[in-house]
């Protein structure tokens, strides 16, 4: 069976989940911690005045928003940054670069167009 591989797209539900995930200070802090390195859920729970179960819930929200991934390792659950999100940041900066390359090319053409610009 031939199946087209669709380009990864972000739909409205993803955006809602992302906004919801980032609307909480603890969850933002967990994201920052996960960017710096991997942490177990119990280690994260020691950082905040809340139960392991409460931290689990926050991590689950972040997981659904694709910001972190969770992996069972022995008795621990390890939380780490979703590397795809980093790739997306990289892709975004590439897209911004492309956008500006287009703009620079158009400015160049515009300046060459003007009667004073004797240089084609």
């Amino acid at each position: 069976m031939v199946v087209d591989t669709p380009a990864p797209e972000i739909d409205d539900d993803d955006v809602d989940r992302l906004f919801h995930a980032l609307a909480d200070a603890t969850r933002r802090d967990i994201v920052v911690a996960a960017m710096e390195g991997e942490h177990s859920v119990s280690a994260l729970a020691r950082r905040y005045p809340m139960s392991v179960a409460a931290v689990q819930k926050h991590v689950a929200v972040l997981e659904r928003a694709h910001l972190v991934t969770k992996e069972r390792r022995g008795r621990e659950q390890i939380v780490r940054m979703n590397i795809d999100a980093i790739r997306q940041a990289s892709r975004l900066l590439d897209a911004i670069e492309d956008l500006w390359r287009g703009r620079i090319a158009r400015i160049g053409a515009l300046l060459a167009d003007e009667p004073e610009g004797a240089h084609p």
């Binding site: 797209e9 972000i10 993803d14 955006v15 992302l18 906004f19 980032l22 933002r28 994201v31 920052v32 960017m35 910001l67 999100a85 997306q88 940041a89 892709r91 975004l92 897209a95 911004i96 492309d98 956008l99 287009g102």
Partner: peptide, 25 residues
Amino acid sequence: REGMEQVIAMGVEEGMTLAVNQIDG
């Protein structure tokens, strides 16, 4: 960083589309 994460969600699709259209042009 939060702003960038929002841009990742909101902007990538539109930004990529714009950039791709531009490259096509």
